[in-house]
Simulated assay, not measured.
Amino acid sequence: MAPNDKSSTTPEQSGTGTQFTDLLKSRRAELGEGLARIASRSVDPGSGREMKRGRLYRLEGNEEGGITPPDFWELRALAAGYRLPLERLQDAAGQQFHGVDPLRSGTGEAVAYVRKLDSLPADQRERLLSLIDSLVPPSLGGDS
């Protein structure tokens, strides 16, 4: 278990699948690199903390007994090591470890819109929601 003493989970325990471990494995295969090479790049740009090869091995699901979910600094380090967007790692970790289903659309436009919302002031977000509700009533939008 990791030093932060978080509980570990297996996909069978969480019931959410292996999106995170599958992403890491498939990306490493795409890069054609070994764990040592990935580990050498897996450094959190914010804190300078380095991921160890053994931790990467476990995060890829190569050890019995489950996986301790990664901390945020580890996700940033993994983004550097695996050369993936941080958001993609967050989505996959959320799915596998916490049962979070990230917003998806056929075109990907909805994700881009949602990510831009945080940069709007609260009054503009409210006006935008009112406009959307006038075009697509909430009862048809899938939230009710």
Rank of each mutant, 00 (worst) to 15 (best):
D5Q: 12
D5Y: 07
S8C: 10
T10K: 10
P11S: 13
E12K: 14
Q13T: 09
G15P: 01
T16S: 14
T16C: 14
T16A: 14
G17K: 03
Q19M: 03
D22K: 08
L24K: 01
L24P: 00
S26R: 13
R27H: 02
R28D: 02
E30W: 08
L31C: 06
G32V: 10
E33N: 02
A36P: 01
S40D: 15
S47V: 04
G48Q: 03
G48F: 04
M51H: 02
R55A: 03
L59D: 00
E64S: 11
G65M: 08
G65N: 10
P70T: 03
P70E: 02
F72N: 13
W73R: 10
L75R: 01
L75Y: 01
L78S: 00
L78Q: 01
A80T: 12
Y82C: 02
R83C: 05
R83V: 09
R88H: 13
R88M: 14
Q90V: 15
P102L: 11
L103K: 04
L103G: 04
G108L: 05
E109A: 12
V111C: 06
Y113C: 09
Y113I: 11
R115E: 15
R115L: 14
R115S: 14
K116Q: 15
L117A: 06
L117G: 02
D118G: 13
L120T: 06
Q124A: 15
Q124Y: 14
R125K: 13
L128F: 15
I132H: 11
D133T: 14
D133P: 07
L135K: 05
V136E: 09
P137F: 03
P138C: 05
S139F: 04
D143E: 08
D143V: 08
S144M: 07
